[in-house]
Simulated assay, not measured.
Amino acid sequence: MINSKNELVKIEILTEKKEWNEFLQSVDDYGFYHTYDYHQISKSESDKAVLIKYTNNDIFIGLPLLIRKINGSDFYDAISVYGYSGPIGSKTPLNFNTSNYEQTLLDFFNKKKIVSVFVRLNPYLTFQNILFSNLGESSYFGKLSYLGKIVNINISKPLEIQKRDYQRRLKTHVNKANRLLTLKIAETKEDFQKFKTLYYENMKRINAKDLYFFSDDYFESFNSSKDFKTEVLLAIDNETKKVVSSCMFIKTNTMVQYHLSGSDEKFLHLNGTKFLIDQMRIKATKEGYKNFNLGGGLGANENDSLFRFKSSFSDEYHPFFVWKLITNKEIYEALCKKNKVHDKESSFFPLYRLNE
């Protein structure tokens, strides 16, 4: 379409791998959470993975989402994949007017009967906050919400400077682990099976929800994807020769992402996970990567043990935001009423899915 200011504005829905990847190659930066393969890995059988491409003359913005049918209704909602996703695109001028993008996106959601949208933003792509700063402000629940900090190790710094920023207790643990453990890069089926076994044991130990007990297909999809590089590292106890810890890391462009890990409960005192993160830090630095994203706490909580563990590696933090939008207040509230959900004080979104 062409708007009143003679700007050529267009919305395209990309669903095929070839066109999705071509778009990724045309943007300034993206992470593995934006890739076609990760969306296919993350979606349920009934979800539809789309990349909403907005073009305005020489400016283009892509928003990847999973579109979901709302059970028992004729409506849909949209959510980003788990992780750090959000919009990506070409460089936008400092004076870029977001109003056209906002209206075009809102029109699309309404046309497709999408009642609500939930997007996890990428803390490394600051322009995302600008795009969403006004979008939906006049709606019932359209806003940016700060959830907490994520921890980054700046691996563009010299290795000795990186380690200097470790907390003192962590340095002691890593130095001890370097004497007691040996690094192995997973290569065989047996290596990957050991990683999965330790990961599942870890999830049982912390009473994780069922959704975190990923299938074999999930793990195999990571290993086979060409959209990003998956590396699994194993820590082997020098005395018993047993694999005591394992971690999965994902590499894309200049970023390394700490994704999943697990440890043998009998060997937690060897600090295998700390050892493996430190080993990946060294490896990725030598390979030329720039950032090592460790993520945040459980539910982005800055006060839990997981965040304290990660922040012992670095005091460089990035703010993590999510964007929540209700496009149709009347239908949203009707769905909440139908599903017998009335707690408007709850932070769960969309609220009508609270009891699913």
Score class of each variant (00 low, 15 high):
T188Y: 09
I130F: 11
K149C: 05
N207P: 02
L180T: 11
Y199Q: 04
A177L: 08
N175H: 10
F141R: 11
S138C: 03
R179G: 05
S145N: 11
K149W: 13
L159T: 10
K184F: 09
K209S: 14
S145L: 13
V151Q: 08
I153K: 02
G136A: 12
I153Q: 07
S145H: 06
I206R: 06
S156D: 15
Q167W: 05
N152H: 07
L183K: 10
L180K: 12
S156I: 05
H173M: 12
L144E: 05
K163M: 09
A177G: 06
K194S: 11
T172I: 14
K184Q: 15
R164A: 13
I161N: 12
E190Y: 02
P158K: 15
L181H: 05
R205N: 11
F214G: 07
F195K: 03
L180E: 15
I155E: 00
R169V: 06
F214W: 04
Y200N: 14
G136T: 10
I150H: 01
N175L: 10
A177I: 08
N202Y: 04
K196Y: 14
K171C: 05
F214K: 02
R168N: 13
K196V: 15
N175P: 02
Q193S: 13
L147F: 15
L159K: 14
K194G: 00
S215R: 03
I185S: 03
R169A: 12
L183D: 04
M203H: 00
I206S: 02
D210K: 14
K194E: 09
K209D: 15
H173T: 03
L180M: 12
L198P: 10
T197W: 01
R168L: 11
L198D: 06
L211D: 12
A186Y: 01
R169C: 01
S156F: 08
K194V: 03
D191L: 04
S156T: 11
F195N: 00
K184D: 05
D191A: 04
E160D: 12
Y212T: 08
F214M: 05
Y146K: 10
L170E: 11
L181F: 07
K189V: 07
Y199L: 04
F213E: 06
F213D: 06
K204C: 07
S145G: 02
T172H: 13
K194Q: 13
F213H: 09
R164M: 11
T197G: 00
Y166D: 11
R169P: 01
P158W: 05
Y140S: 04
K194C: 05
N152P: 00
F141I: 04
G136C: 09
K184L: 08
K163A: 01
Q167G: 10
R168K: 14
L181I: 10
D210R: 12
S139G: 01
Q167R: 15
Y199V: 02
Y140Q: 02
K196N: 07
K189P: 11
F213M: 09
S139L: 07
T197Q: 12
N202Q: 08
K194W: 00
P158G: 04
R169L: 10
D210V: 04
I161V: 13
F192H: 14
I150R: 03
Y200V: 13
K143G: 11
S156K: 12
K176Q: 15
K196D: 04
Y200P: 00
E187W: 02
Y146C: 03
E137N: 14
I185G: 00
G148N: 00
T182P: 04
